[in-house]
């Protein structure tokens, strides 16, 4: 039984200290890299809504993405549901289980991306868990993702020291690999995550899982400042940003704001009320733009 480390995707050397290939030729054409890079250069803040792919079915997600784009989303995160979402709170867990019950898979999510791509150029990023990518095959996933029109992948349970194969395959195919930083991250870890991340760096606003929260932690500005000082890559903040006021506050110091659970909960309460969702996203966009 031979399972080479590369095939298993469990390599453990390159990404650890040496800066990963943050800018391959393939990545220069990447929509996410271009859109977020241009925004950072212009000092413009971006809004990145998150929704669960296939909640409750793929057609609903397709309609939703169109609405999010019209409401001003600069990029969109699509959750790809996993049976054991350890980084997610109850709202996103329920959305994931609804999507799984509706038959969503990684392959299904890629097909959904290809359909969405027929009518929009908005950068699209998956947020998922490592086992799905590993099971699909990392090289095949990166190739198929780019072919479908996906721009990046966030893997909630993959720290950069386990991610060198994904970073290399993503770089070769032109798929951005986004790693996360947290309030517990040391300066050494900030360097290592910055070295492996392309497109943007995902800054988790607090210790915890995804969910709706009432306030923005006071230490967040300092954390984002440390990350921005260490890297040219745009920094987007997520986990718990639920209201326009919070988005405005975070946009004062971060390059972008990610809003997930608040949106997912709204859809859970009434999947048909897209007017409410559109108004909420427009309010968020306005808050982020005139911080």
């Amino acid at each position: 039984m031979s399972r080479s480390r590369a095939a298993a995707g469990t390599g453990r050397s390159a990404a650890r200290r040496a800066a990963a290939p943050t800018s391959t030729a393939a990545l220069r054409d990447n929509r996410l890299v271009r859109v977020l890079g241009a925004a950072r250069a212009a000092g413009r803040r971006v809004l990145v809504p998150y929704v669960m792919a296939g909640d409750p079915d793929p057609a609903a997600t397709e309609r939703l993405v169109e609405l999010l784009v019209a409401a001003g989303a600069d990029a969109i995160e699509l959750g790809v549901p996993f049976s054991d979402p350890i980084a997610d709170g109850p709202v996103n867990q329920r959305a994931g289980f609804r999507a799984l019950a509706g038959g969503m898979t990684l392959g299904g999510a890629l097909a959904l991306v290809a359909r969405i791509r027929e009518h929009t150029g908005v950068p699209l990023v998956f947020m998922t868990y490592y086992n799905l990518l590993l099971h699909h095959g990392l090289a095949a996933f990166c190739r198929e993702a780019v072919a479908a029109g996906l721009d990046g992948v966030i893997t909630a349970d993959l720290p950069p020291e386990e991610g060198d194969v994904l970073v290399a395959e993503g770089g070769a195919a032109g798929l951005a690999t986004i790693f996360l930083l947290a309030p517990t991250s040391t300066d050494a870890r900030i360097r290592s995550v910055a070295g492996a991340s392309t497109g943007f760096i995902y800054c988790v606003s607090r210790t915890g899982v995804t969910g709706v929260r009432d306030e923005v932690p006071p230490e967040l500005a300092e954390l984002v400042g440390r990350i921005r000082a260490a890297s040219e890559t745009p920094v987007c903040v997520g986990f718990g940003i639920s209201r326009p006021g919070q988005a405005r506050e975070v946009a004062r110091y971060a390059d972008g704001v990610i809003v997930g659970s608040a949106l997912v909960r709204m859809l859970e309460e009434d999947p048909e009320d897209l007017g409410r969702v559109g108004a909420f996203v427009r309010d968020l966009k306005a808050a982020v733009s005139d911080r």
């Binding site: 350890i86 980084a87 490592y130 909630a156 349970d157 993959l158 720290p159 020291e161 386990e162 790693f179 996360l180 930083l181 947290a182 309030p183 517990t184 991250s185 040391t186 870890r189 995550v193 988790v204 210790t207 915890g208």
Partner: peptide, 9 residues
């Protein structure tokens, strides 16, 4: 060690 970043430290 495949866990969210928060737990790595």
């Amino acid at each position: 060690r495949y866990v969210p970043e928060t737990l790595i430290p």
